[in-house]
Amino acid sequence: MKKVALLTAILAIFAFSSIAFSAEGAPPLTEKVDVYAEVACYVSLNVTQQPGLLSFSGAPNETKSTTFTTNKKTNCDVNYNVKVSKELTGPNNSTIQLYLNAVGNKEVNYFNAAGSEWNDTFTIIGVTGATSPLAGDYQGEITLTVTKI
């Protein structure tokens, strides 16, 4: 047992010494350490121009439009969905139909690749019905949604 322990100790010292000797001699000994980092998917979305007021005279079958713009920067592939609310709602639940970019269209979807910046302009269109909508103020909304692919 004593012999084995002694032999083990000698071998250990020898191995340690060889490393030390190797590090000091030529060629230089190089060691590599891996470095890792991860950037999470991140999106910046701003409304750069708010939509203007849709002003209707009150006549039936009237169409009015306004635009708004958004700026988006993304470092990952994303889907961009823009959707208008079903309608503008006013006094006594009176409504005006609301569309995006074209009459009959309610939403649009875009693919935006990683590392890109997008400035998009959208047109909001309001259309009154066959009967005159009630006079007053109306409210609706647009929903902007960015989803990682």
Binding site: V47, P51, L54, S85, I124, Q139, I142, L144, V146
Partner: peptide
């Protein structure tokens, strides 16, 4: 993502 924003739309008759 996902992020979502609401943009108000106002109308007047």
């Amino acid at each position: 993502p996902p992020i979502s924003e609401l943009v108000p739309v106002n109308g007047k008759v």
